[in-house]
Simulated scan of single mutants.
Amino acid sequence: MFIKAALNGSRSKADHPAIPITTDELVAAARNAVLAGANAIHFHVRDRDGKETLEAAFVNEQVKAVKAAVPDTPVGISTGAWIEPDISKRVELIRQWEILPNFVSVNGHEPGFEEVVQEILKKQIGVEAGLNSAQAVENFISKGLLKECFRLLIEPEEQELNIALATVKAIEDKLTDKLPHQTVVLHGVDNTCWEILKVAKYKGYDLRIGFEDTLHDPSGAIAESNEALVKAAFHWDL
């Protein structure tokens, strides 16, 4: 069972005191998630004020530290448009990275996503295609970039389970016969997180769990840590 631990996302300490923000916190969270069974680590880089950033100084520092903490585990970060809305600036920031993650996620619904993918590929970093809709799939296909992604993230954002599952099906329909080599991760968020994790297991997809996706364990209680969420994912619906 492959599980990617998504450590923080856009959440803050106001959401949960254990959200890892600083480099030391990210290192500890990554190490503990891997000890709990995570096979990959994903996080959003933060600056000294805790704000999401793509600036090279912080990417270099945090990626280096996390990779050193879990040397046998792939480490990835986000390139979400909200971090730097100006596409030219975003690409230039990525161009300046020196310590490289093993992979990044790029969202297919974001304007200019193809420029981000192309810059990431130039740096020989793996690309995960973030697919929150059938249109996002079409965007990757129309730019000839779906085949360049080593992993596909099916990630419905709807909070009603039946609507989220309809989005999953629409994405899957677009992907039929277009998966020559990619692995697929399916995950939900907040209200749908655990039920969609169950669906992912049933379908044989890889899994994602962590504070980015939910603050709660399967019982509905507030989770103690990313480590606890990873452990819960192994046993959910057994």
Rank of each mutant, 00 (worst) to 15 (best):
N32R: 14
Q118P: 00
E158I: 12
K178P: 01
F211G: 14
G126K: 12
A28P: 09
L197C: 02
V45L: 04
G37L: 10
W236K: 09
L165P: 00
R151A: 09
N162C: 05
K174I: 02
E138I: 15
D237C: 10
K201L: 01
V230G: 06
V189Y: 08
A28M: 09
P17S: 15
Y202M: 10
W97S: 03
H235P: 08
F211H: 07
I125L: 06
I196A: 02
H216C: 04
D217A: 13
S88W: 06
A29C: 10
T167V: 14
L121R: 00
P20A: 03
P180D: 02
A166S: 12
L152S: 10
E224W: 00
S105K: 00
S133C: 07
F140P: 11
L197D: 03
K122V: 13
L7T: 03
L161W: 01
V189D: 05
I163Q: 00
S88A: 08
N102S: 10
L145G: 13
E155P: 01
K123F: 06
I209E: 11
I171M: 03
N39P: 03
I154N: 05
V106L: 06
N226R: 04
I209S: 13
A29W: 09
N32F: 12
L238H: 15
K123N: 11
P71S: 11
A29I: 14
G130F: 01
Y205M: 11
E212I: 00
T23I: 06
K203Q: 14
H42K: 01
G220L: 01
G144M: 10
S12Q: 07
I83D: 00
S133H: 07
A6P: 04
T53W: 02
T79W: 00
A40K: 04
L153Y: 04
K4I: 03
V168D: 05
A223K: 08
G130R: 02
Q124G: 05
R46Q: 04
A81S: 11
I19K: 10
K178D: 02
V189Q: 03
W82D: 08
L153W: 01
P180I: 08
E158D: 13
A56S: 06
L131V: 11
H181W: 02
D237I: 07
Q182R: 04
N39Q: 07
K147F: 05
A164D: 08
N102Q: 11
Y205C: 14
K64P: 00
N132W: 15
I94A: 01
I141L: 05
G80H: 07
N102R: 08
I209W: 13
V185R: 04
V199C: 02
G80T: 00
I3A: 08
I141V: 13
A166T: 11
Q135E: 13
R11V: 07
P101R: 03
H42D: 04
L153F: 02
G76P: 06
I171Q: 12
